[in-house]
Structures are given as structure tokens and as C-alpha cells.
Computed example of a mutant assay.
Amino acid sequence: MSGMKNAYELAMERLGGESAELSDGQKKALAEINSKMKAKVAETEIMFDQQLANETDPAKAAFIQQTRQAQAAKIKANAEEEKEDVRRNP
């Protein structure tokens, strides 16, 4: 690849790793993982937002907010693991 480097390639250079070219299949798989992750995060946020809208107790509302953030972080972490698997296995 010539020209500008993407964020992944720049990060790999900074970390001392090698940046391998991704196949079209890998790029499609990564895009699919991103799409599913965004949909799951949005679904989770909607569910918890509905709970928050109905909650009047500040302590319970704070717990719901923390749970929402934890669930979103878990979804994103799982997606990152899936993407790493795709990058490692062409």
C-alpha cells in the first residue's frame, strides 16, 4: 500500500509490530463486526435509556447508568477480540 497509512498501520508502527495488508475478505469481516457492534451498543443504550426514563430513585438511576456503560464496554471489547482474530487469520 502506498500513500497515506491508516490508523491501524500507524498504531502498529508505533508499537513495533508489523502491519500486514488486509484482504478484501478481512476488510469486509471487520466492517461487518463494526456494524454489528454499533447495532448492539445502540440496542443496549435504548434499553437502558428506557429504564432510566422511568426511574425516579437517583441511586437506582446511577446503577442503571453504570450497568449501561459496562454493557457497552463489554460489547466493544468482544468486537475488538473478533477483529483481532480476523486480522491474525487471513
Rank of each mutant, 00 (worst) to 15 (best):
M1E: 06
M1K: 14
S2P: 11
M4H: 09
K5L: 09
K5F: 04
N6S: 08
A11V: 02
R14I: 08
L15C: 09
S19T: 03
S19P: 00
S19L: 00
A20Q: 12
A20E: 11
E21L: 14
E21Q: 12
G25N: 08
K28I: 01
A31D: 10
E32S: 05
I33Y: 01
N34W: 01
S35Q: 10
M37E: 13
K40P: 02
A42E: 12
A42V: 05
E43M: 10
M47E: 13
Q50M: 12
Q51H: 05
Q51M: 14
A53W: 06
N54A: 15
N54K: 15
E55C: 15
T56A: 13
T56V: 12
A62G: 07
F63H: 09
I64R: 03
Q65W: 05
Q65D: 12
Q66D: 14
T67G: 03
R68W: 04
R68Y: 04
Q71Y: 11
K74H: 10
I75W: 04
K76A: 15
A79R: 05
E81P: 00
E81S: 12
E81F: 09
E81T: 11
E82S: 05
K83E: 10
D85M: 13
D85C: 04
D85K: 12
V86I: 15
P90F: 09
